[in-house]
């Protein structure tokens, strides 16, 4: 356990180091342009000439300005510290100032995204579970629906996302919550469906035969054997499902001119040329994903332990 932690920390540290090293070549042009505007003499002096040269040559010729790349307002690649500061400024600092629900607070935007994720997750898992039960119970449904379920995942949902949003607003549904939840459920239902079909089918032939010798009814067989046998599978697929639902919610916010939500922060950061905002939103999304999956993981362990399924 500690061995794994040590490895993970080392790899993380290596990533941070590489990230830091990459900042210099990534930002040197921006840094030089900025220094030029501030009146410094740069070699070569014109931005047009510099465009022809590689970052490495520029760095070698203008050693003094390399460090400027680490403190830009609009860097091509911000440093981890800059991202951390931006994250703090838009979350913790806001809370301290009592502006938790301000439009500039990532907590507010995260909350919006979380709501879509939640509804999408609910809808997606419902569809997934109901679908799995139908598929396990009926061969006709399985043969008709299963290929389409697979194909549905090969269809890039983002192509549909703008359509879904236009459609739902035309039909008179207020706000973006519903279409976003729909997109989110589209990505979420499939892992749940597949996992549940596997889980409901996991009892062995002998276990099923045993219940037959008791002449148990179909419903009894389903409730007493298939459902409990599928629980471990359910949680595994729920964890994949919630991550997918979050991806869906963010995808639903990206292409559609949304103004609130983490995806919208990314979009707005792009439009206003504030890369720091994009990076902070990305990390907030990552943290949110981590929290959601961890929560489900804890629930799974507690529940399964209470049901005596795992030590």
């Amino acid at each position: 356990m500690t061995k794994t932690a040590l490895s993970v920390l080392t790899v993380l540290a290596a990533i941070v180091v590489i990230w830091y090293l990459a900042v210099a070549p990534m930002n040197i042009r921006v840094a030089l342009d900025q220094a030029e505007r501030a009146g410094a003499t740069i070699d070569p002096p014109s931005a047009v000439e510099r465009r022809e040269m590689s970052s490495w040559v520029l760095m070698a010729k203008n050693r003094d300005y390399i460090s400027e790349g680490y403190a830009l307002d609009r860097p091509r690649l911000p440093t981890p510290v800059q991202v951390g500061q931006e994250l703090w400024k838009t979350t913790g600092a806001m809370v301290l100032n009592g502006r938790t629900w301000s439009k500039r607070s990532l907590i507010y935007h995260g909350w919006i995204t979380l709501q879509s994720t939640f509804w999408g997750f609910l809808l997606g898992t419902t569809i997934g579970i109901v679908g799995a039960i139908a598929i396990v119970q009926s061969r006709v449904i399985e043969m008709s629906v299963m290929p389409w379920a697979i194909i549905s995942q090969a269809i890039p949902i983002v192509a549909l996302a703008p359509m879904i949003i236009v459609l739902s607003s035309q039909v008179g549904i207020e706000g973006r919550g519903f279409p976003k939840a729909l997109i989110s459920s589209y990505l979420c239902f499939f892992p749940v469906l597949v996992g549940m079909v596997k889980g409901l089918r996991s009892p062995s032939a002998e276990q099923l035969d045993l219940l037959k010798t008791y002449s148990a009814s179909g419903v009894q067989r389903f409730m007493k054997l298939r459902v409990p046998a599928s629980l471990p599978y359910l949680f595994t697929s729920l964890k994949i499902g919630i991550a997918a639902a979050l991806v869906g919610a963010i995808v639903g916010e990206l292409p559609t001119g949304a103004i609130s939500g983490l995806g919208a922060r990314i979009l707005i950061g792009d439009q206003f040329g504030t890369p720091l905002a994009i990076w902070a939103a990305l990390f907030a999304a990552a943290i949110l994903a981590g929290v959601l999956v961890t929560l489900l993981d804890r629930t799974q362990q507690a529940l399964l332990r209470r049901m005596g399924m795992r030590s």
Binding site: S7, V11, V247, G263, A289
Partner: peptide, 28 residues
């Protein structure tokens, strides 16, 4: 050592909404 460290990180990143990096990469 590397495998042990990279596997959990990779698994985590694979579950993230990576599409979000699109605007950054388009600007690069």
């Amino acid at each position: 050592f590397l495998t042990r460290g990279l596997l959990p990180i990779g698994n985590f990143v694979a579950a993230l909404p990576i599409v979000g990096v699109a605007p950054i990469l388009v600007s690069w």
